[in-house]
Design a protein around this nucleic acid. Structure first.
Lengths: 218, 218
DNA sequence: CATAGAGGTGACCATAGGGTAATCGTGGCG
DNA sequence: CGCCACGATTACCCTATGGTCACCTCTATG
């Protein structure tokens, strides 16, 4: 979309456009499924133009991964900045995530849509993002449990967001990010609280000592 | 591994070996990163042999995806078959999943390691697996909430398993699947319980999520 | 209006890799 | 002991595509 068709553009603008267009192309066709020609075509230019702005296909992809990861992270950071309670942070965090998915659809696909990696450097870029999200989540988790356990749960939370999103994105369903955030964060927060409660009880075994045994059931 | 180096093998055995070897190769190098020659080499044969057993690269990959998904599903099904309480099912389910990851390492990578898809058919195969896992999880979730909400939570649970696993696998860390299952299922189950009934004890938040959130929207 | 230089192009190279055709060799069977 | 069929190989084709080079064409500027 936007401008196109062999219209002359100042370098910086062209670069932006290429990034924008490349995101769409890669998100839809994956790294290997999309050729540099595809990108160029989508931008209404020819291949050499792309190479005037990016050294290689990898370079372009990496730049994209970077930009896109940055967007997600800042979205989450700014959203949760003003929150007070842990529960509030949780909900705002998920909200930011799901809003990002809903709005920056292609970005989600690029990062988590299995677009085609199999490359250490690409994996690192993605891992770095999830790790940072996880890191920002860690404070929500009771500080009195094993750090490794903390990390596990943090990554589990990231997984929640990813899992919930993927289904909707794959499905093509339109969804209300805020509703989703409420539903999911309710579950997540309750889960986190429950974990923080019992005095660690590390190494609990089959003959579990005492967990919170809230009778009820169903 | 196993036999190799130009040793003659009966067709069915060779086929099995090829599947086994191809799993490793694809898991490590991704779909595009691995050539049919790579697969053949890893099996100690030449390309045409591979093509005698599989029509195309896609075909081979699809067969792999299928086999591997099947393994995960049956692992979960059989593991949770004898469970009684919801909590028990949850823990056994996660246990089966994490054991599968720990043991069938390459399988996890193939399915969820972003090995390189960008292909609708491949995506379908993977989606089918997660969908089935999610389906098997759904009964754990309160039946009195919106079905769509149920599905969301089910997929969120799958995301938990995936997120927790990915970190460890990417990290190369060795881990104890059973411990992980306990940690994670504690959180997950608590989360599920909280959703199924009005906020348990402890002051929740203002806009308490009444049990039935038949949030119209969409 | 000449011109420099940035923006852009067409044509091309080189190689990887999916897929196939023709051929070989060996072990079991009559 | 010969032969056939199955397992395997060598050699090859051909398309797609990452990447480059030489050249063109606007437009701003003196």
């Amino acid at each position: 979309m936007v401008t196109s068709m062999s219209i002359r553009l100042p370098a910086s603008a062209r670069r932006e456009q290429l990034l924008e267009v490349a995101l769409q192309v890669f998100a839809r066709q994956g790294y290997h499924g999309a050729s540099m020609n595809d990108v160029a075509d989508a931008a209404g230019v020819t291949k050499p133009v792309v190479y005037q702005h990016f050294d290689s296909k990898r370079d372009l992809y990496l730049a994209l991964l970077d930009a896109v990861g940055e967007r997600l992270l800042t979205a989450i950071y700014t959203a949760t900045a003003g929150a007070t309670s842990g529960k509030h942070v949780t909900e705002l965090g998920f909200q930011a995530y799901f809003r990002w998915v809903a709005h920056d659809h292609d970005a989600f696909l690029l990062l988590f849509g299995g677009g085609g990696k199999a490359d250490d450097e690409f994996n690192d870029a993605v891992r770095k993002v999830t790790a940072q999200v996880a890191e920002s989540i860690k404070p929500l988790i009771a500080a009195d449990i094993d750090p490794e356990h903390q990390r596990t749960l943090a990554h589990a939370l990231v997984g929640i967001a990813e899992g919930a999103s993927r289904r909707l994105v794959d499905n093509g369903t339109d969804f209300d990010p805020d509703l989703l955030a409420r539903q999911v964060s309710d579950m997540a927060w309750a889960g986190l609280r429950a974990v923080s409660r019992p005095p660690t009880a590390a190494g609990s075994n089959p003959d579990s000592p005492r967990r919170i045994r809230r009778a009820s059931t169903r």
